[in-house]
Computed example of a mutant assay.
Amino acid sequence: MSHHPPFKQVEGSRPEFDTNQQWTTTKTPAPEWQVGSGSNGLESLAGVKEGLWDGKQPEGRFTEVDPANEAAPKLYKMLISAITPRPIGFISTVNAKGETNLAPFSYFAAVGHDPLVVMVSFTHPNGDDMKGTCENILTTKEFSANIISEPFVEAANYTSIDAPKGTSEWPLSGLTPVPSKTIKPARVGESGFSMECVLEHSYDLKNDKGVRTGTMVLGRVQLVHARSDLIDRETLLVDTAKLMPVSRLGGITYARTTQMYELPRPVFDKEKERDEVKALLAKA
């Protein structure tokens, strides 16, 4: 039995979703940061004044976690609450019978651009069974990966329901299946960025007991569908502000992307000529 109040009761106490919040670009936290100076020391950031971000290692500051000594559910909670924010792969598949499936996965990432490859990883309920999406990909060798945005996040979240295999989440979500051009699984019509993928490689993950607990899948992108107002046709840059992507944090928490700052990459051939850089390199 849950010790927490009903979710709708908790949600009711929170401020309304701010649709007027504008995409903004700010300065970096410390624009005057100097090479070799470590953390920026901005005391208005939580914990900086208390020295929590100074790199020192006093007794008790860190908790060591040995995965071999912890239960898998606890490790899962730790991982998804620490490695954040995570992009969400909204994966559309079809099984061997032609039955459709649609579900979100936050073990999802871009892997490479030449060839264009994305990764999605699945945890399994036990060593003998696997989630429908993973099973479908391994069987049919195809999937559609779609980016989730704020205008349809509730519908996307509903597809995470623990429906039995063979039950399509598409009608439950109310989202629009649009036929793909190179694969059988449909793409999500509401998504501003979708990729038609074929299976490039898969790799089973096994725990210390040798039990298969997950499968990582690499998908080679055959075709991209980017809404024309979101992408610059010449540079192929996608406008994040217009895409309004949703990311995952820990538990049932999602995050918005509404603010950014820019940090140019230093160029070694230029930086090495600076006196302060020369001095730091000489100490190395």
Rank of each mutant, 00 (worst) to 15 (best):
E43D: 05
M244I: 07
V94N: 02
E70D: 03
R61E: 11
T253D: 11
R248A: 05
K97R: 12
S37H: 13
T213R: 09
F268T: 06
E196L: 02
G219V: 02
L237I: 12
N95Q: 05
Y107W: 14
I231V: 15
L218G: 11
P164V: 02
I252F: 09
K278G: 13
I88E: 07
P125C: 11
S37F: 13
Y261M: 11
V217I: 15
T213K: 10
L236S: 08
S121E: 00
S144Q: 05
K181D: 00
P29Y: 07
T28C: 13
A163P: 10
A163K: 12
A30F: 14
F268I: 02
E190P: 08
K283M: 11
A30H: 14
V153F: 09
V267Q: 10
T123E: 13
G192N: 12
M216N: 03
T28M: 14
K97Q: 15
G38C: 01
T240R: 02
D18L: 12
G38I: 07
H4F: 07
D128W: 10
Q57P: 05
R61K: 15
T140S: 06
E64T: 12
E150T: 15
P171R: 08
V153P: 02
R220C: 01
L102T: 09
K8W: 07
P179S: 14
H201P: 04
G251I: 05
A156N: 04
E70C: 13
S81C: 15
L172M: 15
E50I: 03
R227T: 12
P6V: 09
D232L: 08
Y254P: 05
V120T: 14
N207G: 03
H4C: 02
E11A: 15
P266V: 09
A82D: 02
A186K: 07
T235F: 06
D162G: 05
E64R: 13
T28A: 14
M244K: 13
V178C: 01
E190F: 02
G112H: 09
G98P: 07
E273G: 05
V221E: 03
D232N: 14
T19I: 05
